[in-house]
């Protein structure tokens, strides 16, 4: 439609880019700083583009602080907890979507309500249980906590996706004599894969950025990137460039995943209330 004048479009474009860049600026500035020497990073007036570009921070972050150890932990924790959550949630969501009972709705809402419990409400007992079982700073323990924390979201998301699979197809397959096993493998799985994939994506993002349990239950061995970055808050010297390099590495992979998942994000985070 040509109702909009070109002038208006240009004005809006300029405005939108200014707003977008302003919101994005802290990230951009962090990435730029990560390529500076520590001296340039601290200089006033700040150097915007014409500084001595260097990769030394990236090299040093790895050498001094075992960056990859923590990155690996982040990967293990986020994918591990997501995988366990799927093992539990796929059958549950399948059951609730395809053979709902009178209580399905209240069960779903109850699951949701567990997500609303503030973590500090159970910090003390979880910490003590972990201490007594020797699970402080263990990957296994943290995977369990992250899995349980996100299970309600995973069930919910899968439920809303499974619910959209047309039932007629299932009935037709049953008429043709498909067993439940065949029904799942040949009919449901292919239709459910997009939904499962976006659930995985969102859950990995949430687990990757989780910063209450990871900060409280890990110190070094199982510490993911959230805890690793937090160690830069201690005021020993000014390592802005190294902090920026470590931060850039920590958020880059998830930023890419996040950008791909932006359509599913709204639905997943609002439990299907806004589509």
């Amino acid at each position: 439609m040509a109702v909009y004048s070109v002038r208006r479009q240009v004005t809006m474009t300029i405005l939108a880019w200014i707003v977008g860049l302003a919101i994005f600026f802290p990230i951009l500035w962090m990435v730029l700083t990560s390529f500076k020497t520590e001296l340039d990073a601290f200089s006033t007036p700040p150097q915007f583009l014409f500084f001595h570009w260097t990769l030394e921070n990236y090299a040093e972050v790895q050498e001094r602080s075992h960056y990859f150890h923590h990155a690996l932990n982040s990967i293990i924790l986020s994918f591990g907890s997501t995988l366990v959550a799927l093992l539990f949630a796929i059958p549950a969501a399948w059951g609730m979507a395809f053979s709902p009972t009178k209580r399905t709705r209240s069960t779903l809402l109850w699951m949701l309500s567990t997500k609303m419990m503030p973590p500090v409400g159970v910090l003390v007992p979880i910490y003590l249980i972990f201490r007594d079982l020797g699970m402080l700073d263990s990957r296994f323990g943290l995977i369990m906590v992250l899995f349980l924390g996100n299970l309600p979201i995973v069930v919910w998301m899968l439920y809303t996706y499974f619910k959209e699979i047309p039932r007629d197809i299932l009935e037709a397959a049953r008429m043709d004599g498909a067993t439940i096993g065949k029904e799942i493998i040949y009919i449901l799985a292919p239709m459910a894969i997009p939904g499962i994939a976006s659930t995985v994506l969102l859950n990995v993002i949430l687990a990757w950025n989780e910063a209450f349990w990871t900060l409280n239950l890990t110190t070094s061995e199982a510490a993911p990137l959230t805890t690793f970055i937090a160690s830069y808050s201690s005021p020993e010297g000014l390592f802005w460039a190294k902090l920026s390099a470590a931060s850039t590495l920590a958020i880059a992979p998830i930023m890419v995943l996040g950008w791909f998942s932006q359509k599913q994000l709204v639905r997943g985070l609002t439990f299907g209330a806004v589509k």
Partner: peptide, 9 residues
């Protein structure tokens, strides 16, 4: 983008 940045960062 800011939504995907971990809180500590």
């Amino acid at each position: 983008a800011p939504f995907f940045v971990m809180p500590t960062v």
